[in-house]
């Protein structure tokens, strides 16, 4: 019983967040609906760039790191670097793909 009530608590404390998640899932489905198959590759690549938003978390970790904690700083540095690769590489390669459609 205690276990169930703790789950229920978790729900009520995060109610807004859970609503947000569910609505966002539907937005994601809606946004992709009816896309012609020729655009699947650029779209996948564009979505790939967008999940690079995880870099915001990496920056956040760095900003809150103790300057003396070298392990944390080293891992954080790597995380920001990899996140940037994901964001910049993702958007640039998507742009290159879409540039070709635009020419016509």
């Amino acid at each position: 019983m205690e276990y169930i009530s703790s789950i229920l608590n978790l729900f009520s404390e995060n109610e807004k967040m859970i609503y947000f998640v569910i609505l966002a899932i539907f937005v994601g489905i809606e946004v992709i609906g009816g896309v012609p198959s020729i655009l699947h590759t650029p779209l996948m690549s564009g979505a790939n760039a967008i999940h690079g938003v995880v870099i915001v978390g990496a920056i956040y970790v760095m900003l809150n790191s103790d300057p003396e904690n070298y392990v944390s700083l080293a891992l954080g540095f790597l995380a920001v670097l990899l996140g940037t690769l994901n964001v910049v590489g993702g958007f640039v390669v998507t742009d290159r793909m879409l540039e070709m459609f635009k020419k016509k």
């Binding site: 967040m17 947000f20 998640v21 966002a24 899932i25 539907f26 937005v27 994601g28 489905i29 946004v31 992709i32 996948m44 979505a47 790939n48 967008i50 999940h51 690079g52 938003v53 995880v54 915001v56 978390g57």
Partner: peptide, 13 residues
């Protein structure tokens, strides 16, 4: 912003 980006890609992907 992380939530929107992440979930959007999660469901659309």
């Amino acid at each position: 912003v992380m939530l929107t980006g992440g979930i959007l890609v999660g469901s659309a992907g």
